[in-house]
Design a protein around this nucleic acid. Structure first.
Lengths: 211, 211
DNA sequence: TTCCGAACAGAACATTTGTGCCGTGATTTG
DNA sequence: CAAATCACGGCACAAATGTTCTGTTCGGAA
């Protein structure tokens, strides 16, 4: 990529990234001029127009420092999602239903690399206990969930098993009146439950563990 | 938190977050004025000064739109680390030593929530195979590593077991001439190796799994 | 009451900053 | 070759924008 850019344009892009990383606000035309050793503001303007045409940046006209970095296909990048940590998850507890207005315990910043590029109304729960070890999820891990009451085959879901009164995290495969729940640990056998005995509470988007 | 802020200051902070999330560049004083229904630019300036004193923002004087959001303790926030994905990790392969100049296969954006606030010269590896299932790490997971050749007791390390010719991810406890390597799965027993048989190759910072 | 400081209002002022215009040289195109 | 296009340089201008200055209001302390 970036082979459709002149050397000066690449230099400007690099400068933009560095400047924004350092200051958290974009540079002015003249900042770019001196930062990239360009002789005139009009040259900077000229190349910024080319970069905008090619989908690497977006500018708001007439607004100072209004340069937004894009990914080269005209899409926004570096967007972070603020995901609220609403509580904890444990085998013996159903996922509580949290009111939208509930104040989160904590908010974590996720990048789209963590959600496979998907966006949605995610929330996070802290795993308590080792009961989900069969899902390769440990005590203290953070699970990212998308609230849902249905799931597509193959989705990893948080499901409440009614008669056992427990929450489990497994791959979801509806099979007629039954549901096959496949542990993520491939060496383990699936369990089968009657469809009426399984309540999907959310779709698992990802898990995070830090040491 | 945020109880040391007046209502107007909280309103300004919220507006700043929304504006930056939407535009990727900060608002001008007058943007804040109209966005928060404030009567005068000087009132905005006044409250921005208070916010700066209290460590919620940082401003560069005389530079337009130069407002950077801080976390309330004067620390930068929302900083993302660009972590290169340098290759893959599998039980039967030692961690290759990657030259600093090597072009990464891919770069992922991480927030500090993913690294427990630590920063460093991290890199990431994609896990191949299920051989690390005992470390609760699955095929396809991403492990974040900090290159190190020594470790403190209790660190989770990537270690090369010389005579077995395999890489393992375990908690590291030096015990005299021996090293106790404790699986992360608490139900599993540790293994003991001669210290000369264990080569620490990196410290595990975190793992990420997305579905 | 008086005093004082926090918070606000309004307007003028000085920079900062994007933009437009005119021109030049190199390269490409017909 | 002539014309068009691209990339650039220099400069002036107008708009955007942060700053400052002078007051005003209001509540609490002395």
């Amino acid at each position: 990529m970036a082979s459709d850019l002149s050397e000066k344009q690449q230099s400007i892009l690099r400068f933009l990234e560095e400047f924004i990383a350092e200051h958290d606000y974009p540079p002015s035309i003249r900042d770019i001029q001196s930062g990239c050793d360009i002789s005139s503001t009009s040259v900077v303007d000229y190349n910024l127009k080319r970069l905008e045409e090619k989908g690497y940046i977006r500018r708001d006209r007439e607004v100072s420092r209004a340069i937004e970095l894009l990914n080269g296909q005209g899409e926004r990048r570096r967007r972070t999602l603020q995901v609220p940590v609403l509580g904890k998850i444990a085998a013996g507890l159903p996922l509580p239903v949290y009111p939208d207005t509930m104040a989160p315990l904590e908010v974590i910043d996720l990048t789209e690399d963590m959600t496979s590029g998907r966006t949605g109304n995610f929330y996070a729960l802290r795993v308590q206990g080792t009961s989900m070890i069969d899902a390769l999820i440990n005590d203290g891990d953070l699970v990212i969930l998308e609230p849902r009451e249905t799931a597509d085959p193959g989705d990893v879901v948080a499901a409440w098993i009614v008669d056992r009164e427990e929450t489990t995290l497994k791959k979801y495969y509806p099979e007629g009146k039954q549901v096959r729940l496949q542990p993520m640990n491939a060496t383990m056998d699936p369990i089968y439950e009657d469809a009426t005995n399984v309540r999907v509470q959310g779709r698992l988007v990802g898990t995070i563990r830090s040491f």
